[in-house]
Design a binder for these strands. Structure first.
Lengths: 81, 81
DNA sequence: TAAAAATATGATCTAAAGATCATAAATATC
DNA sequence: GATATTTATGATCTTTAGATCATATTTTTA
């Protein structure tokens, strides 16, 4: 299950989807990740200046990683693995 | 050609590899991307607080995108597509 | 090896992220 | 619809990223 991202908002949306898919509230993710709920809300809504480190903290908590890939023809919608 | 990233340093290293693969200096990438050479240097060296937006600006200039993926067993070394 | 080119680092300034708290607003539940 | 829960937003504070400039250091080239 991959989500393709070309913008900060894409990352935020992907993180939200995975969070919900795991039936976690932002508050629960906050506890898991050490990132504040308010911060998670902003990131999920596409905060352009979100820190890379914070993104990786959320990825770790959601058991995710990022792949740096050549730009594809794909859209930033849902991608099946 | 994918590079797997679990930390800001991984992202920085991936970006550097792709830049070099395209025979670009940091200064040339700076011109392409609108991000300052000095900033690129810091990011390539693993700046934890690098802004997501800045990362995507570099990705766009290098014709890259990110995939949000489930954590794999892989290491953050070079991965062949 | 010397010179040129590329990269890294330091200083200053402005804007803003994240922590922290509070709470308004939105959503979910019954 | 009422209530509970979740998410979004605003305020304050500290830290720091990025822009900008300069230049030290390192790497590359001839």
């Amino acid at each position: 299950m991959n989500y393709l991202a070309r913008t900060p908002a894409d990352i935020g949306h992907a993180l939200r989807r995975v969070r919900k898919k795991n039936s976690l509230t932002q508050k629960e993710l906050a506890s898991k990740s050490g990132v504040w709920q308010e911060t998670i809300s902003k990131i999920e809504n596409g905060l352009p200046g979100a820190k890379l480190e914070t993104i990786f903290e959320l990825c770790a908590a959601l058991d995710l990683e990022l792949l740096v890939a050549d730009r594809s023809k794909g859209t930033t919608d849902f991608l099946e693995e």
